[in-house]
Simulated scan of single mutants.
Amino acid sequence: MAEQDEGRGQGARPARAPRRITSDYLQRAAMHYLERYSAPAAQLRRVLARKIVLSCRHHGEDPALHGAALDDVVSRCIASGLVDDQRFAEARAATLRRRGRSARAVAATLAAKGVARELVERVSSVDDDEELAAARKAARRKRLGPWSRGDRAASRQKDLAAMARAGFAITVARVVIDGSGDEDANCGTPI
């Protein structure tokens, strides 16, 4: 028992050494990643660069030697249509809006994934009705305002703060928190 590795149980296999970086290996790694996840070019580049750094650290190589291969693999994925930043941004923004995220939260999420600023602004912009519907969904999910179980007056400031942290404007948050809760979350009209 004293010979166990830190953090591993008895009988656990030792970690495999990372493979040496080749252009073919990077292409296979990119395909494997893109089979499982939709990603913009910047995210794919970060994932592959992390693999390069791990392998080079283990094998004593310089990661800068593989920069051209990394650029080539990412550009091939873009050229073949496997990586499309606009398609990714539109799909991710639609998913986040359906979950009740604010336009600011959508923009922050896309920017963190490496989507270009112009594309983030274009995709995350919504009209007032869509933002209000998203705020209602968020409030319902978090049980704020009309959907809370406690005293609404006592928790009003906390509910407004929660909506502000979620990225909603104070005017939108006030409408939702002070509302009756009988509006349909999809269109903003009474049921």
Rank of each mutant, 00 (worst) to 15 (best):
A30I: 07
S75W: 03
R28G: 04
F88N: 06
G60Q: 02
R76S: 10
Y33C: 06
A69R: 11
H59R: 07
S23T: 12
S55D: 09
S55T: 09
A69C: 01
D84G: 08
D84V: 04
A49K: 12
Y25P: 00
E35K: 15
C77I: 00
H32K: 12
F88V: 01
V83L: 07
G67A: 14
Y37C: 02
A89G: 05
F88H: 08
R36L: 13
D62T: 09
E35H: 11
Q43W: 01
H66Y: 15
D84Q: 06
K51T: 09
A15R: 08
S38M: 11
V73I: 06
L70Q: 03
D85N: 12
E61K: 12
A41Y: 01
R50G: 13
R87K: 13
D62L: 07
A64T: 12
R57H: 04
A41S: 15
M31P: 00
Y25T: 11
F88R: 02
L48I: 06
D85G: 08
Y25W: 15
S75N: 05
Q27C: 00
R36K: 15
Y25V: 06
V53A: 12
R20A: 14
P40A: 01
G81K: 12
R87N: 02
H66Q: 02
R20V: 08
Q27F: 06
L44S: 10
I78K: 04
L54V: 09
A64V: 09
Q43R: 09
A79T: 06
H66W: 13
Q27I: 00
R19F: 02
A49C: 05
D85A: 03
I78N: 02
H58S: 13
R16N: 13
A69K: 12
C56H: 06
L34F: 04
L70A: 08
D24F: 03
L65R: 10
A79N: 10
C77T: 07
E61N: 10
Y37D: 08
Y33D: 00
V73R: 08
H66S: 08
R87D: 03
H58T: 13
Q27G: 13
R19V: 11
P63H: 05
L34S: 06
V53D: 11
H58R: 13
Q86W: 03
K51I: 04
R50E: 15
V83F: 12
D71Y: 05
A15E: 14
L82H: 12
